[in-house]
Write a protein that binds this DNA or RNA. Structure first.
Lengths: 213, 213
DNA sequence: GTCTATAGCTTGATAGAC
DNA sequence: GTCTATCAAGCTATAGAC
């Protein structure tokens, strides 16, 4: 409630975030976005310079916050374990928990943002370039920490393991509702507490299993 | 080499598969598809009735083959283990191996198909409806087999575990090239043998870890 | 910063000749 | 089954008034 007056830029970012998450980049027109934002069409070009720069601004806005929080927690678990390396469970937690906390405690926009991220991460069109630009520097530090926590694992196993880890995460973040259908309502895609209880154990056990190969 | 003469319908399906995989449904125009297929624009409507029916036909063509092969292998591992239930590793293998075999031994179209599937699976727009229509009946049998292989696990754990499993799989199938960048070339997204060696162990260990919670 | 008006294209779909 | 021709609608982007 700190600043209820959103600027035009923020209105555009919020509306674009929600709509890009639902129908993707090409499935969303600037007219739809500006109508939802209650803002004139021409202002997209004034504030962002075009459709694609707007898209990239959406991805980067919360990406920067996420990186910051992840690195803070990674430093924390490393400090707590020193001089030993942080455990696999702790590193995985530092990677997942910021996302789960944002989803549970913060504004609804994070749901859209992560759903969009899930799509971008799995898209050949955007995956490599856009995910890399925003997240590579942070991710490299996590992969290094995972390697230190699993000294017997080959580097290739850790890279592939990170790939599986992020795949499991992103599909969960997409909140497609498919889990609800498959389980006939027993599980809900949007149940963050249920996800939190299970994602970490699954991934940590998977990584240890890979290292044991 | 059995039938080198493709029908117009097949030409359209092949071109659409490749292009939808690259840029998604909204990012691909019918003109781009028909140009790539060497076929007249109006024939999409004649043969399929529109853009969306073409998209669904692409998803269903190979989906039917995949379901068939998966169920064949599931029956096989069940028969081999009877009267005990098939092991988690065997069930997971029956789910992954058909995909990996198609990728390794069959025509290039399977790469596009699975890459497209990865995007659809992570998309709120298509995920629930299109994945469900083609795959729900088969997937339910696999989830049931997983439950039998992990009798101590709660059903919720298996449903969430299936969600993680399919997330890890689909990101690997997307072949976004991100793994190549992160590992500085040490691992390659398209290396099916490397994926085969690691995906099963990761997922089986993850499921067992979940069940042990 | 905001808005109107519009240029210049591309889109999916179809009517109708062959 | 195939192809030409075209329609109406939608798109991004921008020039220029306020």
């Amino acid at each position: 409630m700190a600043r209820p007056r959103r600027t035009t830029k923020e209105k555009l970012l919020d509306a674009a975030e929600k709509l890009f998450a639902r129908k993707g980049y090409h499935g969303t027109s600037l007219r739809t976005i500006t109508r939802a934002a209650g803002v004139d069409l021409a202002l997209v070009n004034y504030h962002f310079g075009g459709k694609q720069p707007l898209f990239e601004a959406v991805l980067e806005r919360r990406g920067a916050l996420l990186n910051e929080e992840r690195l803070r927690r990674l430093a924390e678990v490393r400090r707590a374990a020193a001089p030993a390396p942080a455990s696999t469970e702790a590193v995985v937690g530092a990677f997942f928990d910021p996302i789960l906390d944002f989803l549970e405690h913060a504004d609804r926009g994070w749901h859209s943002y992560f759903s969009l991220l899930a799509e971008v991460n799995n898209s050949p069109e955007w995956g490599k370039r856009m995910m890399g630009k925003t997240f590579n520097a942070t991710v490299k530090q996590f992969i290094e920490a995972l390697m230190q926590s699993l000294p017997q694992a080959a580097p290739q196993d850790v890279y592939w393991g990170y790939n599986f880890l992020t795949g499991a995460l992103t599909l969960s973040l997409a909140e497609t509702g498919r889990l609800d259908v498959l389980s006939a309502g027993l599980c809900r895609s949007a149940d963050v507490a249920a996800l939190r209880a299970r994602l970490g154990p699954f991934v940590a056990a998977g990584l240890r299993g890979l290292a044991r190969r």
